[in-house]
């Protein structure tokens, strides 16, 4: 029997926006090595739960624990990697891929200058998503799938034990979704715990060990992932030719997926 605390625990979590309850009564426990997909239609509260467990939204009720420590006291931020929804990658002054990925290392370096080991970790993270050749390019000039990879590389620079991804497949073409699946597959093999929000799983489906389906701010289902045929959650806002359908392709090997031989 393992003495390790769960990677993540949510007990009776509720979040409210301007007095309106967005999620309530959410209980969730994620153990090491699990790959959990939080599914649901728009407005179901899935992204709200993810943002609350990271401390980005205040709790109206309940408690969140990361690695057994209450969120308010949790300090070892290098253990958590976060991949937000794409969109934060472009700002008023364009930055290069390497500059953005390097910010992921700040959780470890703090105010000290970057050392050789830090620079190597950044290069390794870019290599792991196949962007080493674009290191000096502006993120704004990359495709949507490549921008997503930049955010993933940033989250990997500290080798996190828990990786949290918010809609990593949204607006990303099928080839990039397959490549994402390959990267996540490699992380799962290393023992990384993954929790991701998705509208549809596509190529990620074979990796998922458990699915939590949300509706109206509550957990509707918590168990094995649904079969691909039952996975697509119809929503006109997410219907797009670039989205692959409910069927899935298995994750390709990382080098071929990122265009490397």
């Amino acid at each position: 029997m393992s003495l390790q605390p769960p990677v993540l625990e949510l007990q009776g979590v509720a979040v409210a926006y301007d007095g309106r309850t967005a999620v309530s009564g959410v209980d969730l426990q994620v153990d090491a090595g699990e790959v959990v997909a939080v599914l649901g239609a728009n407005g179901s509260g899935k992204s709200t739960v993810i943002r609350a467990l990271l401390g980005l939204l205040p709790l109206a009720a309940g408690e969140v624990r990361l690695f057994g420590t209450p969120l308010a006291q949790f300090r070892d931020r290098t253990r958590v990697g976060y991949v937000p929804q794409r969109g934060g990658a472009s700002t008023g002054v364009p930055a290069t891929v390497r500059e953005v990925v390097a910010t992921g290392r700040l959780a470890l370096t703090g105010l000290r200058r970057a050392r050789a080991a830090d620079r190597e970790a950044v290069e390794r993270a870019m290599l792991s998503v196949g962007l080493q050749d674009r290191a000096g390019d502006s993120v704004a000039t990359l495709s949507g799938g490549q921008q997503q990879r930049v955010l993933i590389a940033r989250a990997l620079t500290c080798d996190p034990d828990l990786l949290v991804l918010d809609e990593p497949t949204a607006g990303v073409d099928l080839a990039s979704q397959q490549a994402l699946a390959a990267t996540l597959s490699a992380l799962v093999v290393r023992g990384t715990t993954v929790i991701l929000v998705a509208h549809e799983l596509g190529p990620l489906h074979p990796l998922i060990t458990r699915a939590v389906t949300m509706a109206d701010g509550r957990v509707l289902h918590d168990g094995p992932p649904p079969e691909p045929d039952h996975l697509h959650l119809h929503d006109p806002e997410h219907a797009h030719p670039l989205h692959d359908g409910p069927g899935h392709a298995g994750p390709a090997s990382a080098p071929s997926a990122w265009g490397l031989q």
């Binding site: 401390g55 980005l56 934060g88 930055a95 910010t103």
Partner: peptide, 22 residues
């Protein structure tokens, strides 16, 4: 010179900077 990298991270992606503990 001391906090430039941290300021860059915050101005680039404030939410990520929060999660990273900055």
């Amino acid at each position: 010179a001391v906090v430039g990298r941290q300021l860059f991270a915050v101005c680039h992606d404030e939410e990520y900077a929060k999660v990273a503990g900055l």
